[in-house]
Design a protein around this nucleic acid. Structure first.
Lengths: 245, 245
DNA sequence: TGAAAGTCAAGAGCACTGCTCTCAAAAGTT
DNA sequence: AACTTTTGAGAGCAGTGCTCTTGACTTTCA
């Protein structure tokens, strides 16, 4: 889709009927691919199945999409942009000045999109598809939209009042979550408070989030040379968050 | 491996030569599967390739392993236990009393194993393999070893002195990481301090870690009913960590 | 208008996958 | 020695990505 459309756009000619039909077919392929991706995940994405749904023989789709990996790249960019759009929309609906609310909006936008599109989220942030290497020149720009938005939020906050230290009063735990924590305490024989368990689960998931980013190469190829130091810092903060003085 | 051995063990008979050979063959299959998994990832794991390496025709391996999914389960349990062993070993090498050091040891054990075995880590904590559903009765016990160890660390600390509040003095940033942060600031036109960037990256990865846990179902099937509340709490803490008062 | 150029879908085919079935040989048991 | 169980081989089915050739169609241009 992107490739074909940019070809057409760069030519700046009125679309010939043929070019229109071609762009439409590629758009259809991406749409069907997205549906398959959403249903079964990236590893199960099959060009032949897309061809069947398109009502065409399997070899025909190769006229429009170079390979399965090419389609995967199209879908990757597609998904990154949809997530980026969701985050941008959530931020736009927030007052410029309330930085905490803006962060919360960003976080919730990421989560709702991920829950709505688990397989596509998995393509972006899960284990890499074997044998597939995303072409950086096409994926880094859309792939960094969320981080850039996050940095802007934090940057704005610091520019305004130089980083407020974390509040220490624990946020309130609602009844539903309290019941979950009760069950966990019973199951594991733990005596940790609701607040400690909330922090603990965050430390747990954050630990694996940090490790996953490094293992799956989601920081970007050349972002961090001092990965060990970065991880040590993160562990320090997580230990503090867990309450391990 | 597990199935066969438990059959033999439950019979409590001395191993017949045939049973010995069978157990050995299954062990070989798991070993070869682990090698393939480590090289190409779960989605590319092929029973036929394993059969070739074993020097046997493809249908023969079905005498030992019910299906590809069955082999995947074997490898899943295998990986969980190796990670669990690594964490336990790291904890055993730590003084009982230094809870912060124990947490750091656990974290570093997870990270080194993950970096050593990226594809197997991906099987455990990446996007789910399409069409494969891990049998809970065989995977939950080994799959929860790390969390249980983590909870024990935190529990011990709280039992001893009731949860020390997080220290507020920022940990020192080394020269290597400082250079990385300089590059990031230059690239993004940010003026955030090293400490703010360290916290920011942790917030970033932690956000996606938390979302991934929920999307990929790594909390366990029935652990949290109040997922929304839990996420809100996590966002609160992350906002605090990011310095968004 | 008519021929050349460009574009397209179809089909066959290759090498791979998971998995099932049958059959004969090997191994263990009585 | 006869019988039973276990095992490996091979064929086969349905699926995959991808390539190549062939014939038909559309656009362009003289």
């Amino acid at each position: 889709m992107l490739g074909a459309m940019s070809d057409v756009e760069s030519a700046a000619k009125p679309l010939t009927p043929r070019a229109r039909a071609r762009a439409q077919t590629i758009a259809d392929i991406v749409r069907l691919g997205r549906e398959h991706l959403a249903k079964q995940g990236a590893a199960a994405l099959s060009l032949r199945a897309v061809a069947r749904d398109l009502g065409v023989v399997s070899s025909a789709v190769y006229r429009y999409v170079e390979s399965r990996d090419e389609l995967l790249t199209l879908l990757l960019v597609d998904a990154y942009n949809e997530l980026g759009d969701a985050v941008d929309a959530a931020l736009d609906a927030c007052p410029e000045s309330d930085h905490r609310a803006r962060f919360a909006a960003l976080a919730h936008a990421v989560r709702s999109w991920a829950l709505r599109e688990p397989a596509r989220y998995g393509l972006l942030f899960g284990s890499p598809v074997p044998g597939y290497q995303a072409p950086a020149e096409r994926t880094t720009e859309p792939g960094t939209r969320v981080v850039r938005a996050l940095i802007k939020v934090v940057d704005d906050a610091y520019r305004e009042h130089g980083g407020t230290p974390a509040q220490t009063r624990p946020p309130a735990v609602g009844p539903g979550l309290h019941a979950d924590f009760e069950a966990i305490r019973a199951q594991l024989g733990s005596t940790l408070s609701d607040d400690a368990l909330a922090r603990g689960t965050l430390v747990w998931t954050a630990l694996f989030g940090t490790v996953s980013f490094e293992v799956f190469g989601q920081y970007g190829p050349e972002t961090f040379r001092a990965n060990d130091e970065l991880f040590d810092l993160h562990v320090e903060h997580l230990a503090g968050l867990a309450g391990l003085g």
